[in-house]
Computed example of a mutant assay.
Amino acid sequence: MLRRLVLTATVSAAALACAVPAAGAVTSPLPLPVPLLYAPDRLTVMVSETGARTDGRYELECAPAGGTHPSAQSACERLDELAGQNHDPFAPVPEGQMCTQQFGGPATARITGTWRGQHVDATFDRSDGCEISRWRTLEPVLPNTRS
């Protein structure tokens, strides 16, 4: 059986090699691969109850940095830094994670949009130690709420 497969593959390869285009025929080159197209990094950041002037809705665009976000350049740099660490900054706290029972204030945020070709819809608060840490990891995309 193996011999039959090898023989069939050899004959097929020889037949393809002999199939020379007719003299003078123009052959077109193989098409170049199309680069993967990603939607641009574009996020909407909505922040409330921070107790500061940072409450509001901001647009953040990266590569190049822009939009209405007050710290667009440093926010994009932080997202790039987290990506370089293979860290998903928008992932929720894992189910069953033990967290300190401390309250970091009533601040909440929601981030929606596209980042690195992926859809983002993440919510943030400061309801316990894990959520506070998650918020701080994403500063300055989210505002610093420490006094």
Rank of each mutant, 00 (worst) to 15 (best):
R57Y: 12
S133E: 15
E59P: 05
S12K: 04
Q97E: 12
A75Q: 01
P106Y: 04
S133L: 13
L32V: 08
P106Q: 05
W115S: 01
P143K: 10
L36C: 05
A63W: 03
W135H: 10
S74W: 01
R146G: 03
D80R: 13
P140A: 04
I111C: 08
G105N: 02
L142A: 09
R110H: 08
P29D: 08
H69E: 14
R126F: 02
L2P: 02
V11D: 01
L2S: 09
V34A: 09
T68S: 15
A83D: 07
T137P: 01
E59T: 15
S28E: 12
A72E: 04
A107K: 03
L36P: 08
T145R: 04
Q97K: 13
V141N: 00
S71T: 12
A14D: 00
P92D: 09
A17F: 10
P92H: 02
R3G: 06
V45Y: 13
T112S: 11
P33Y: 08
A14V: 03
V47H: 11
G56A: 11
C18P: 00
M1I: 13
R134I: 11
P40F: 00
E139L: 07
P40C: 02
M1K: 14
L60F: 00
V11K: 01
G84D: 07
L30H: 06
A72W: 02
E61I: 12
A72Q: 05
L5W: 12
Q101L: 12
V120K: 07
W135L: 10
L79Y: 01
L142Y: 08
V6S: 06
P64T: 01
S48R: 13
A52N: 01
R4N: 09
R116I: 00
Q97Y: 07
G56F: 09
A23R: 15
L7R: 13
V93Y: 09
L7A: 15
E77W: 05
P29C: 06
S147R: 10
A52Y: 06
R134A: 08
T112L: 05
L7H: 06
A22W: 13
V45C: 14
P33M: 09
G96F: 00
P70S: 07
W115P: 01
V20T: 14
F124N: 08
A19N: 13
P21A: 15
T27V: 15
Y58E: 10
A63M: 04
C18I: 05
A75T: 00
N144C: 04
P31M: 03
T27Y: 10
D121R: 08
S12Q: 08
E95D: 06
R42M: 05
G56N: 12
T114M: 12
E77G: 07
D41F: 01
T108A: 04
C99S: 11
T123S: 10
L7M: 07
A107Q: 02
G66T: 10
Q97T: 15
E81R: 11
P21K: 14
D55Y: 11
A17M: 10
G104C: 04
E95S: 04
A65Y: 01
D88K: 07
P35A: 07
A107M: 02
V6Q: 13
D80Y: 00
D128R: 10
L2R: 14
D121W: 07
G56Q: 11
A75D: 00
R134Y: 13
C76A: 03
L7N: 03
Y38C: 03
A25Y: 15
R126G: 02
T137L: 15
S127K: 07
T108K: 13
